[in-house]
Computed example of a mutant assay.
Amino acid sequence: MNLKETNSILYLEKLKNLMLSGSLLSKDTFIVDDLDSIMDSREESNFDKQWIRNYNKINEKRYLINFKIKELIDSIREIAYKITYAFTESSDLAAYVSDDFGLIAEALVLNHNDEWLNTLGKKYLENKIPNGTLNPSKGELRKILLMDNIL
């Protein structure tokens, strides 16, 4: 196992632990007045356009992710789905959140940094479901989301 793979696994394990501990995707994240309006605003062109732009950039390098790391990313997506569904009973919202965490996890592995994606991650740290217009945040996703200046 090379250093890049080892670091990727460490990043993903830390992300997973933040989710399982409730630091990400806590009950507070899902205390909202209108889940339908949140989901609708995620489908508006600005949010959707930025999400797809990041997805496509990551997709160009997805072939670099090995099977072991892909399995770990899948487990993160599954945890995000199950936590969201447990709090909301909304399979649609659970799918959105799972997709977000899949995108975030792949970005961490591929060292994909994007100011919009940084804000997507920040919203989850703030116990909010990202939607609507997200103002760009400078920095590195790993440092923002994992609060990690060491690795």
Rank of each mutant, 00 (worst) to 15 (best):
L12G: 11
R142M: 04
L15P: 12
L18H: 14
Y85G: 02
Y85T: 01
K138T: 09
I129N: 03
H112F: 10
I144A: 04
E106C: 09
T88R: 04
K68L: 11
E5F: 06
D40L: 11
F67K: 08
D74F: 15
N131Y: 12
W116M: 09
E44Q: 14
P136Y: 00
N7H: 12
H112D: 01
G121P: 12
H112C: 05
K128Q: 15
L151D: 00
S91E: 01
G132D: 12
P136E: 14
I76W: 02
L117S: 03
D28F: 08
F30D: 05
F30Y: 12
A80G: 14
G121V: 03
E5L: 11
L12D: 10
W116D: 10
N54I: 08
S37Y: 10
K82M: 10
E115P: 13
M39H: 11
A105V: 06
V97W: 00
T88Y: 00
K49R: 11
L151T: 03
S8H: 10
A105Y: 06
D74A: 13
Y85I: 03
H112A: 05
R142H: 15
G22I: 07
L125N: 02
L10E: 14
N118W: 09
D114Y: 00
L25H: 08
D28S: 09
N59K: 11
K68W: 00
S21Q: 09
N54G: 14
I129P: 07
T88N: 06
I69F: 12
G102D: 05
E71V: 02
A107K: 05
I150L: 14
S90I: 06
N46C: 06
L15G: 09
E60Y: 03
P130R: 00
I83T: 02
E126C: 03
W116R: 08
E106I: 00
A94P: 01
L125M: 10
N113K: 07
K138H: 05
N56F: 00
F30R: 02
G139T: 08
F30Q: 04
S137T: 13
L110Q: 11
V97R: 04
M19S: 10
S91C: 01
S21F: 15
L134C: 09
L25N: 03
L145M: 12
F67C: 06
N118A: 04
P130D: 12
D114K: 04
S41C: 02
E60M: 12
F30G: 04
E5C: 07
L134G: 05
I83G: 01
D74H: 13
L35D: 13
N131H: 15
I83E: 01
K16P: 10
V109Y: 11
I129W: 00
G121I: 02
L20M: 10
Y96S: 06
M1Y: 01
K4V: 10
D148S: 13
I69R: 02
L93W: 00
R142S: 09
A86R: 15
S137E: 12
I31V: 12
K123R: 05
L141M: 09
R77Q: 12
I150R: 08
D40N: 07
E43I: 10
S137D: 07
S75G: 11
D48P: 00
D100V: 01
F87R: 04
K138Q: 04
